[in-house]
Each structure stands twice: as C-alpha cells, then as structure tokens.
C-alpha cells in the first residue's frame, strides 16, 4: 500500500445544459402534465405538481471538516444540515441530509453549473460534487389527503410529532424508492428516479384517485 498524499486535484466541470436548440425534457415529459392541468379537475383532496428540470447536485464531504462546512455555506448561502434527517433552504436552494457525509442540493436548473463550479473553486480537500439533474425529478404532493397517499406508499411514520416540516428521509416508496421531505404541513416533496418516474406517476394517480387528484402545471 502506498502512502496517501494530498495533492492538488484538477476537476473539469462540464455544463450539462444543452443550448436552446434542444428542448429540455423532464422524466415526466411524456405525461404532459400541462395539458392534464388544463383539462382535468380543479378541486380535489390531493394536488400533484412536478418541480421539473431543477438542478440536482449530490455533495459528499466530511461533516467534521470546518473549512469544508464553511465553503459549502459560502456557495449555497445556507449552512449544511448536519443533523440527521433534516433539511435547510434559502430562497430557491434546498439542501437535504441524505447520509452523514452526503447531501442532495437542488437549485434552479440554470444555476446548477454555476453552483457546481463554485464548489470546485471554494472547497478544498477530499470532496465530491456530482450533477445528477438528468437522473431524477421532484413531485410535490399537497392538500389535506396528501399524507394518506404517502401512508399508502411507504412504511415511514409521517405523524407530525415524528415527521415535522423540514424532515427528510430516504425510504422505500411503492416498491421503488424516494427521498421524502415534508415541505409544509400538508405538503410532501418526493425526489424520484428517472427510470421509476412513469411507474410512480401511474402509482400516484391510482393511490390518490379516491381523494380526487388535481394536477398543477
């Protein structure tokens, strides 16, 4: 085994956004939620809205490294949540605790490259930022009955005493998985994988049918 040396590492960051000649398509593009929103029901117990085409960045770093924590706060404008299962947000930036050394950051799609570049500039040492925007999307469920749809789909305890606003867990969800965050008293945000998005879209329609599903564009 060789000695581990800390050397300056050059990381090239590629802007993954195509130019205007290529249309950006979210994982739920084919569902055409905009058309359903126009023609579908306007009132119901559950409202579903896709937060499409956000910039998703995964950050891996040492939560005990004060310099890295400071750098992350400088880039994001908000301190990393180091308490397990919590999230932090400021403006259009949301940071979710995923694991003791991993966070999922979402920013507006057009800002992802800028934030990624800023991490490479500000942060030193052993860390990793990866743009995973193409691999997942966010679905927001809100309304009085949104919690029942979550209860049908996942074994997590979402009673407000156990699952307050801001809490985030990664769990199984309808035989797939999701990063579930309570973004409001009656509002849940699911980060879902691209390859499971159609299945979950069908599942969510079915699971919320009895409460009345409203699609928001």
């Amino acid at each position: 085994m060789s000695d581990v040396k800390t050397e300056a590492v050059t990381v090239s960051v590629i802007n993954q956004l195509p130019d205007a000649s290529i249309q950006g398509q979210s994982p739920l593009f084919h569902a055409d939620l905009a058309t359903i929103a126009k023609s579908g029901p306007k009132t119901g117990g559950v409202t579903l809205k896709e937060e499409a085409l956000l910039g998703h960045l995964t950050l891996r770093m040492n939560p005990e490294n004060a310099d890295q924590l400071k750098a992350a706060e400088k880039v994001l404008g908000v301190a990393l949540p180091t308490q397990p299962l919590t999230s932090a947000s400021k403006g259009d930036v949301v940071v979710r605790w995923i694991s003791p050394d991993e966070w999922l950051i979402t920013v507006p799609g057009l800002k992802a490259f800028e934030v990624e570049t800023a991490f490479q500039k500000e942060m030193k040492g052993h860390f990793q930022v990866v743009n995973v925007s193409g691999g997942q999307t966010i679905v927001k469920l809100s309304g009085k009955y949104a919690q029942y749809v979550i209860k049908k789909s996942s074994p997590i305890d979402i009673h407000p005493s156990e699952f307050p606003v801001g809490k985030v867990v990664t769990s199984v969800f309808a035989k797939s998985s999701a990063i579930i965050r309570r973004s409001g008293e009656n509002e849940f945000e699911l980060v879902i994988r691209r390859s499971f998005s159609d299945y979950l879209w069908l599942w969510l329609q079915d699971a919320s049918r009895e409460y009345g599903l409203v699609i928001e564009a």
């Binding site: 299962l85 003791p100 074994p155 867990v169």
Partner: peptide, 18 residues
Amino acid sequence: MFLIYCPHCGEYREEEEF
C-alpha cells in the same frame, strides 16, 4: 412491523429498508 434502529439516521425504521 419489525423496526430496526439505524445509528446513522438516529431512529427506528422498518425492516424492509435494511
């Protein structure tokens, strides 16, 4: 339900997650 405590998450979670 069979709950298992995850020392990293700091809470009990369903066995299906493990």
